[in-house]
Protein backbone atom coordinates (compact mmCIF):
# COMPACT_ATOMS: atom_id res chain seq x y z
CA UNK A 1 0.00 0.00 0.00
CA UNK A 2 2.82 2.39 0.94
CA UNK A 3 4.74 1.84 -2.33
CA UNK A 4 1.54 2.22 -4.37
CA UNK A 5 0.64 5.48 -2.61
CA UNK A 6 4.16 6.90 -2.93
CA UNK A 7 4.32 5.93 -6.61
CA UNK A 8 0.93 7.26 -7.72
CA UNK A 9 0.02 9.88 -5.09
CA UNK A 10 3.49 10.95 -3.96
CA UNK A 11 2.93 14.44 -5.42
CA UNK A 12 0.29 15.02 -2.71
CA UNK A 13 3.01 15.08 -0.05
CA UNK A 14 3.42 18.78 -0.83
CA UNK A 15 -0.11 19.47 0.48
CA UNK A 16 0.58 20.74 4.03
CA UNK A 17 -0.28 18.14 6.67
CA UNK A 18 -1.51 15.48 4.26
CA UNK A 19 1.57 13.26 4.66
CA UNK A 20 1.12 13.38 8.45
CA UNK A 21 -2.54 12.35 8.02
CA UNK A 22 -1.40 9.52 5.74
CA UNK A 23 1.13 8.39 8.34
CA UNK A 24 -1.63 8.31 10.99
CA UNK A 25 -3.59 5.97 8.69
CA UNK A 26 -0.42 3.88 8.29
CA UNK A 27 -0.27 3.60 12.08
CA UNK A 28 -3.86 2.31 12.15
CA UNK A 29 -3.03 -0.14 9.35
CA UNK A 30 0.03 -1.32 11.29
CA UNK A 31 -2.07 -1.62 14.47
CA UNK A 32 -4.32 -4.06 12.62
CA UNK A 33 -1.70 -5.98 10.63
CA UNK A 34 1.45 -5.95 12.80
CA UNK A 35 0.90 -4.15 16.14
CA UNK A 36 4.30 -5.16 17.56
CA UNK A 37 5.95 -2.94 14.94
CA UNK A 38 4.58 0.10 16.81
CA UNK A 39 6.35 -1.16 19.97
CA UNK A 40 9.58 -1.62 18.02
CA UNK A 41 9.39 1.96 16.71
CA UNK A 42 8.81 3.16 20.30
CA UNK A 43 11.86 1.16 21.40
CA UNK A 44 14.00 2.73 18.67
CA UNK A 45 12.77 6.17 19.72
CA UNK A 46 13.68 5.51 23.38
CA UNK A 47 17.15 4.24 22.44
CA UNK A 48 17.80 7.18 20.12
CA UNK A 49 16.65 9.72 22.71
CA UNK A 50 19.17 8.27 25.14
CA UNK A 51 21.98 9.52 22.84
CA UNK A 52 23.22 13.06 23.63
CA UNK A 53 21.73 16.00 21.70
CA UNK A 54 19.14 13.83 19.96
CA UNK A 55 15.52 14.90 19.49
CA UNK A 56 12.50 13.43 17.72
CA UNK A 57 9.59 15.07 15.93
CA UNK A 58 7.20 14.48 13.04
CA UNK A 59 8.89 14.17 9.67
CA UNK A 60 7.52 16.67 7.13
CA UNK A 61 6.40 13.81 4.86
CA UNK A 62 5.04 11.68 7.71
CA UNK A 63 6.85 9.48 10.20
CA UNK A 64 9.08 9.90 13.21
CA UNK A 65 12.24 11.89 12.56
CA UNK A 66 15.43 11.66 14.59
CA UNK A 67 17.72 14.69 14.71
CA UNK A 68 21.13 15.39 16.15
CA UNK A 69 21.84 19.10 16.63
CA UNK A 70 18.68 19.72 14.55
CA UNK A 71 20.15 17.84 11.60
CA UNK A 72 18.18 14.82 10.43
CA UNK A 73 19.68 11.43 11.14
CA UNK A 74 16.76 9.58 9.56
CA UNK A 75 13.05 8.92 9.88
CA UNK A 76 10.79 5.90 10.26
CA UNK A 77 7.42 5.76 8.53
CA UNK A 78 4.70 4.00 10.51
CA UNK A 79 4.90 0.91 8.29
CA UNK A 80 8.44 0.32 9.60
CA UNK A 81 10.32 1.87 6.69
CA UNK A 82 13.50 3.55 7.88
CA UNK A 83 14.89 6.19 5.52
CA UNK A 84 18.20 7.85 6.23
CA UNK A 85 21.07 9.70 4.67
CA UNK A 86 24.57 8.22 4.77
CA UNK A 87 27.67 8.91 2.77
CA UNK A 88 27.78 7.20 -0.63
CA UNK A 89 30.82 5.20 0.54
CA UNK A 90 29.04 3.83 3.63
CA UNK A 91 25.95 3.17 1.53
CA UNK A 92 27.98 1.21 -1.05
CA UNK A 93 29.50 -0.95 1.71
CA UNK A 94 26.10 -1.60 3.30
CA UNK A 95 24.49 -2.40 -0.05
CA UNK A 96 27.01 -5.22 -0.44
CA UNK A 97 25.69 -6.77 2.78
CA UNK A 98 22.31 -6.95 1.05
CA UNK A 99 20.10 -5.78 3.90
CA UNK A 100 19.44 -2.20 2.87
CA UNK A 101 17.79 -0.84 -0.27
CA UNK A 102 18.29 2.18 -2.42
CA UNK A 103 15.97 4.91 -1.08
CA UNK A 104 12.40 4.46 -2.38
CA UNK A 105 12.43 7.94 -3.97
CA UNK A 106 16.00 9.28 -4.12
CA UNK A 107 17.99 6.84 -6.21
CA UNK A 108 21.75 7.27 -6.73
CA UNK A 109 22.20 9.40 -3.60
CA UNK A 110 23.41 8.62 -0.09
CA UNK A 111 19.82 7.98 1.00
CA UNK A 112 18.92 4.41 1.96
CA UNK A 113 15.75 2.56 2.91
CA UNK A 114 15.47 -0.33 5.32
CA UNK A 115 12.27 -2.22 6.20
CA UNK A 116 11.93 -3.21 9.85
CA UNK A 117 10.09 -6.52 9.65
CA UNK A 118 11.50 -8.65 12.48
CA UNK A 119 12.83 -8.11 15.97
CA UNK A 120 16.33 -8.67 14.57
CA UNK A 121 15.79 -5.77 12.19
CA UNK A 122 15.31 -3.44 15.17
CA UNK A 123 18.92 -3.96 16.23
CA UNK A 124 20.14 -3.42 12.66
CA UNK A 125 18.03 -0.25 12.36
CA UNK A 126 19.65 1.03 15.56
CA UNK A 127 23.09 0.27 14.13
CA UNK A 128 22.22 2.21 10.97
CA UNK A 129 20.90 5.14 13.00
CA UNK A 130 24.07 5.05 15.10
CA UNK A 131 26.07 5.37 11.85
CA UNK A 132 23.95 8.35 10.86
CA UNK A 133 24.35 9.83 14.33
CA UNK A 134 28.13 9.53 14.12
CA UNK A 135 28.19 10.95 10.60
CA UNK A 136 26.54 14.14 11.87
CA UNK A 137 28.88 14.18 14.87
CA UNK A 138 31.91 14.20 12.64
CA UNK A 139 30.54 17.24 10.83
CA UNK A 140 29.98 19.30 14.00
Amino acid sequence: MFSFTVKYFGFLKFVPGLAIVFDAWLKIHTLITKPILLDWIDLIETRMLSLPNTTTHNHKYGGLQFDRYQTEIGHIHSNGLLDMLLTRKIKANLMQQGRILDHHSFKNTGWISFYIRTEGDVQYALELLQLGYERIGERE
Binding site: K27, I28, L31, P35, I36, L38, D39, I41, D42
Partner: peptide
Protein backbone atom coordinates in the same frame (compact mmCIF):
# COMPACT_ATOMS: atom_id res chain seq x y z
CA UNK B 1 2.99 3.40 24.08
CA UNK B 2 2.02 4.21 20.50
CA UNK B 3 0.20 0.88 20.28
CA UNK B 4 -1.84 1.62 23.43
CA UNK B 5 -2.59 5.12 22.15
CA UNK B 6 -3.75 3.76 18.80
CA UNK B 7 -6.06 1.28 20.56
CA UNK B 8 -7.38 4.02 22.84
CA UNK B 9 -8.09 6.13 19.73
Amino acid sequence: STRALAWAS
